[in-house]
Amino acid sequence: MSNDSQKAGDKFDQARRGFLEKLGKAAAGAGAASALPAPAWGGASFLEAFGDMFNKQYKKMTRKEIDAALSRIRRRALRQYGVEIDCDDTPPQENVVFGYAINISTCQGYRDCVHACVKENNLGRDSQVEYIRVLEMDQGTRNLEEADHYYDPDTVPVEGKYYLPVQCMQCDDPPCVKACPVEATWMEPDGIVVIDYDWCIGCRYCMAACPYWARHFNWSQPKLPPEEINTKTHYLGNRPRPRGVVEKCHFCIQRTREGGQPACMEACPTGARVFGNLLDPDSEIRYILENKTVFRLKEDLGTEPKLWYYTD
């Protein structure tokens, strides 16, 4: 990028920033008025909608703009679902890169993780998006084409089968990030590949690029029962998503950045899931990577997944 054009871009940014600040003030006024009953057309003021429309990409926003966007998200949730949510953008921790290891000799195929994830991450209940797929595999093969995604026996594990949970691998060289034409998706310093749902144009090229089928699209407005909404949300994580954008597993960024476990790990009754900091030599995950037999799915594609599988 040449210096000149950089400057031109900056100037544009400044102009817009001024404009948006004014807008923000107006929107704040509208917010104050929201104590009154919401008007019949849903309560989105023209300015509010306008502010949504000209949101900048997350990484380009100033602190002030981020705060404005966060409060817009809160108001939007209130409008759409009548629920007061809390949305923040907790930054990554220093010297932390997240990794995940799944013990496939322990996994029993219960799918508890799948459903905990749906609840935690405010996934549309009708749209059937699930970040985790547990594959039922024939013992003696790792051919994904032989896998059964929809297994439904009376009890699991079924004899002769083993179970392989698949989700976003948070690749260290993510092909989806490379693919995105508008930089709506990127890898954060703690290794989580995130999506700015307010920037994604919904071209779905990243879905074609992902070798793990980890990316999912909101074909319709996701439906959330208000009473089931998880109100603790993150800008790059589980905040309610609009229609027409792509989403995927983000290692429960709203929990893990604050030291919590991902919901899938917490829900797993077998302890097959181990999450931790790859940069901490004393962490459990490092012990596993250095001492157990591990493998990664489709490693040959060179995407450097940060989710490993291991066996006892």
């Binding site: 219960y110 799918r111 799948v114 797929r133 297994y151 594990p157 074909w219 319709s220 077998t270």
Partner: peptide
């Protein structure tokens, strides 16, 4: 997790499988 007298984990009903998108 393991019953010391019968430590093998008992089979259990799995939770619902995936669906497909609306429509």
């Amino acid at each position: 997790c393991h019953d010391a007298h019968d430590p093998v984990i008992k089979p259990r009903e799995p939770m619902a499988g995936p669906g497909v998108r609306t429509g």
